[in-house]
Design a protein around this nucleic acid. Sequence first.
DNA 1: ATGGCCCCCTGCGCGC
DNA 2: TGCGCGCAGGGGGCCA
Length: 234
Amino acid sequence: MPELPEVETIARGLDPLLAGRRVISLTVLDRRVFPGDPEAFRRVFVGRAFAGVRRRAKLCLADMDNGAVIAFHLKMTGRLYVARPAAEPRAHLRVLIGLDDGRALHFDDMRRFGSCRGFAPGAIEAWDFFRKLGPEPLEMACGQFLDALAGRGGRIKALLLNQEVLAGIGNIYADEALFMAGIRPDAKADRIPRARLEALFRAIREVLCRAIDAGGSTIRDYRTAEGVEGSFQW
DNA sequence: ATGGCCCCCTGCGCGC
DNA sequence: TGCGCGCAGGGGGCCA
């Protein structure tokens, strides 16, 4: 159930592993999780080096040195990790990206809810879903948050889950933040006192930041525990 | 703008 | 005990 903090953790973990690495192959084992034409994407992707990995909303985005982007949405059961050369693929491996150091980026998704999309340089801006994403909760001011909810008569939880209002919050963190702020999930946004909404804003930040911190430590523990230098999974 | 419904898919739990 | 059916579960798309 990766939401903002989990995807942030994944992106931070993958970034140092992928940055500078060159892609030597793209293997789509299941076309259903790769909307679009793999061959067309291969032409702008294979042979390029990763510039870095970042998060936007619940998307994990890998930027290439030519501006191409590959976007992963993990949904419920998706996993994204760098596998060692000899590692046995998991049962539900869907996309495999071969790297120039012999390792590979694996996108694994048991239920195929997740997806993986490739974009030619500049093309991601034309992706409707991407373009419509609202502001990042951790990068906005409280006033902006209040503005986003102003005049909204819908249920507060539905609005928090709406990625066009706020980007990256899912079921778990919406519930947690609302509970912390003492707001019922079905309360109409425009009937919630301003002070309560300010408390909600603080709760969202706290819940997300705490989860990101926890994720980071989990990864460090995992790495040391496994002793697998350079491998990563959340 | 809002809410309701459906779908994505598969492991698991329940009932017989 | 074994089998098969039905549903959970996050998130997004579509429709009214």
